[in-house]
Amino acid sequence: MAQETVPDEVAQTERAAFRAELLASGMLIDGGVDGLYQRSGAFERIVRGVEAVASQAGAGIGGPQRYFSPLMAKAAFERTDYLRSFPDLIGAIGVFRGTDADHTALLRAAHAGEDWTAFLTPADVALCSAACHSLYSTLPATIPEGGLRYEVQGYCFRHEPSIDPVRMQSFRMHEFVCVGEAEDAVTHRNAWLERGLEVLAGLGLDVQAEEANDPFFGRAGRMLAANQREMTLKFEITSPVSTSQVRTAIASANYHESHFGGTFGLTAIDGGVAHSSCFGFGLERICLALLARHGMNPDQWPESVRSALWR
């Protein structure tokens, strides 16, 4: 996300210490590569509390709920335009479709420590980069008046291995999405930014809203990032998490303009290309922010926080 800086020594030391504390307490278990973790029951209990708080914030206005697989149809993935904007973060899936002879060659390569994935071919699924991506291809081509709202949750993959616990390769977003006319989308984004701040402050977190941009790739990306800032399309709710030096985005509020409406062929009731926006709670990051703020033992967290999460 946007707050990436040149890692200074203090920040890196603090991040490593936070990671060590999470692993030593058993809250998270090292998944074998940087940025991949197994979650303890205690961690997952916090995540589910946060999920419940987020869901409750949308009660009655969030729309139908959708829970997505970590995978999405490759054809829909291509329409998100992530190949253009974030080629460095995406992940595709390879599958084995070979013969016995190919299998033998694959095993020989694996045994020799060579690249056995060279024997795989592309699957018709890809890893989701953002939860709301799975939604758009399932919407009606003409969005009804007033727009459509959905509450969605899904696993996201970002290839950015790091020892910083906030930068997981696999994590969940709990989102509130709106697709409709421009005004529907902007109103939704702005209302949720306010609501998100209230919800997260209610958990005792030190939060603030900041204008932000996505880490678009390359020269074209610098232009997209500048546009995003110039048009104030993206806000992040930040909090101190793994270091005191840099605030981390734990939620974000994004106005996509007509981007997804255009690539997924969605038309608003005014006849123009549909606009969309989303507000996403980063479930693992909020959980980490709570652990950083209130300590590694949730039994000792303030009663107000405990009752909000697990009423």
């Binding site: 335009d81 020269r219 997209l224 303009e257 981007h259």
Partner: peptide, 23 residues
Amino acid sequence: LTSHASVNVMLGLEDAFDVEFPD
């Protein structure tokens, strides 16, 4: 003109005029 299309225009102009837009 959308943001994403304007990026394609930028790249198209760079090709057409053999220039590179500064940041």
